[in-house]
């Protein structure tokens, strides 16, 4: 109750930045996926912080839905990654240039 909400927001912004940089910089598909999870968690933290600051539990309900969507996204994304790895050995996103003209 006593920590001001802006501190949490700053932490969430920094966490989102770290995730975004990782998504842009890394080449491994799995690590890029983990960076997406980092960004989702940063947004979750923001939701919870605003739920506390605005005295509205709807923010926490939003986090609940984000969790479910993240779980579904991970399942489908990892399925796609497994299907890609079954076809080719390359581990990096650079190897996936099938759509290049």
């Amino acid at each position: 109750m006593s920590i001001p909400g802006s501190w949490f927001l700053v932490v969430a912004a920094m966490l989102f930045t770290v995730g975004a940089i990782g998504l842009l910089v890394r080449r491994n598909v799995l690590v890029m996926f983990m960076c997406v999870e980092l960004m989702l968690n940063a947004v979750n933290l923001t939701f919870v912080t605003f739920a506390r600051m605005l005295h509205d539990v709807g923010g926490q309900a939003a986090v609940f839905f984000v969790l479910v969507v993240a779980a579904a996204e991970v399942v489908v994304g990892l399925g796609i990654i497994v299907a890609i790895f079954r076809r080719r050995a390359g581990a990096t996103a650079d190897d996936l240039h099938m759509l290049k003209g």
Partner: peptide, 10 residues
């Protein structure tokens, strides 16, 4: 951080 903001369930 969730626990610290009264979001125990989350």
């Amino acid at each position: 951080l969730f626990v610290e903001q009264n979001a125990e369930f989350l």
